[in-house]
Write a protein that binds this DNA or RNA. Structure first.
Length: 263
DNA sequence: CCCAAGTCCTGGTTGC
DNA sequence: TGCAACCAGGACTTGG
């Protein structure tokens, strides 16, 4: 979430009002045809982990970075890196400024698609409220017996929480990741929501998590990896109680937590 | 060989 | 029994 939000902000600053020119979609995105050429970027929004580029002529470019996706804005003459799946020239018709926009994704979990504005499908139509929205998360999920970590990862509960944020949030809230949703006290749910906003704010302020692949649109790194309390720290000691941090699988994802502090 | 990630898909189980 | 709702786990992908 934090990483996508940072990219959204940078795209709005760098390429809002630019027009697509000379689009070269990679093999995977062959449905991105020449109809993108000539469309102007009006505004970039975000919903969960999806980037939504509102374009002229009532079109929208929807981008999901998957796990290893990078969206880079660079100079025309700069060589494109390996695993570039989509490349286009962006031109500001007023100032004459020109950039390249690249979508780079070694693991190819990311997706780019061009649609009519507002015509969403798949997960995008069923996302829960944003982390910073005043709307309550989808409480129905909390009546399930699923472990709370699985509920946080579920984009229908709250949109935008990925694996590392969930671990950091549950540590901050002192809740065990394997606690069934239907055992959570309302005050514990409030704690989790408050921690989600706190941790997400912190990750944003630190420029996002560059644990493996994330870079901002300049290609430079974020710093949140230097502020993690549990994620990636299995076997090391808890900063609160000095006990060794444990690791388990929840919903198929590696989960790190403190068995002493989190109940 | 195994692991990491987010989402989609499949097939199985539960509950009314 | 019928059928929807729910849920677990695999597939996808490639570098370390």
């Amino acid at each position: 979430m934090a990483e996508v939000e940072i990219i959204r902000t940078e795209l709005n600053r760098k390429i809002a009002s630019f027009t697509f020119d000379a689009v070269e979609p990679g093999l995977r995105y062959s449905h991105l045809d020449e109809s993108l050429t000539g469309l102007q970027i009006q505004h970039v929004n975000r919903r969960g982990k999806f980037l939504l580029l509102y374009l002229s002529n009532d079109h929208e470019l929807i981008i999901h970075l998957g796990m290893t996706g990078q969206l880079l804005v660079s100079d025309l003459e700069k060589a494109s890196p390996k695993h570039t799946h989509f490349e286009s020239v962006l031109r500001n018709l007023t100032t004459g400024a020109v950039f390249k926009l690249l979508f780079v994704d070694p693991r190819r979990f990311g997706k780019v698609s061009l649609t009519k504005a507002g015509v969403y499908k798949g997960l995008l139509t069923r996302l829960g409220p944003e982390i910073f929205s005043k709307d309550h998360p989808t409480q129905a999920l909390l009546r399930s017996k699923k472990p709370v970590k699985a509920i946080l990862l579920d984009q229908h509960f709250m949109a935008g929480l990925g694996n590392y944020l969930c671990d950091e949030i549950l540590f901050d809230a002192n809740i065990s990741p394997s606690r069934p949703g239907n055992t959570l006290h309302p005050s514990e749910i409030e704690r989790i929501v408050a921690s989600a906003r706190k941790i997400a704010t912190n990750a944003l302020e630190k420029g996002g998590l560059s644990f493996s692949d994330y870079v901002n649109t300049d290609g430079t790194l974020g710093h949140f990896q230097n502020h993690l309390k549990v994620y990636g720290r299995q076997g090391q000691s808890c900063y609160t109680c000095s006990q060794s941090l444990a690791t388990i699988k929840v919903a198929g994802r590696t989960t790190v937590f403190c068995g002493t502090c989190q109940r």
